[in-house]
């Protein structure tokens, strides 16, 4: 299972972004082999339709099958439901990427070396 996680900074101790489509970076976590890849969000400065473009990029280029977010827009949620992706909504955005990886039993040191 590949999960897209929106994060504020390009670091493993970064907190989860409160917005989904306009977050600064994305962590693409592959739960099956424990690999994590952090990429810049190329669509965050687009004035209109950032969510739709980002969604297609995540689906086609990153092959994700789950989204993790603190809060996401209604369009993003509709698209994710239609594409039958799993949506995970966390309760606090103060959680860091490290803490989430810990939940998923992924060691950040081995994940980052990929």
């Amino acid at each position: 299972m590949i999960i897209a996680i929106p994060i504020e900074k390009e670091q493993f101790d970064s907190t989860i972004s409160t917005t989904f489509a306009r977050s600064n970076y994305f962590a693409i976590v592959d739960k099956s082999n424990g690999k994590v890849q952090i990429t810049e969000n190329l669509f965050k400065d687009i004035q209109k339709g950032a969510g739709i473009k980002l969604f297609h990029w995540l689906i086609e280029k990153q092959n994700i099958d789950a989204l993790l977010a603190f809060e996401m827009g209604y369009k993003m949620q509709q698209m994710a439901t239609e594409a039958s992706l799993q949506i995970i909504i966390i309760n606090e955005h103060s959680k860091t990427l490290n803490q989430l990886l810990e939940y998923m039993n992924i060691n950040p040191k081995t994940a980052f070396s990929s």
């Binding site: 039958s84 995970i88 909504i89």
Partner: peptide, 9 residues
């Protein structure tokens, strides 16, 4: 972990 999630099928 207090997270909410949906079922895909």
């Amino acid at each position: 972990c207090d997270s909410k999630f949906n079922s895909t099928d």
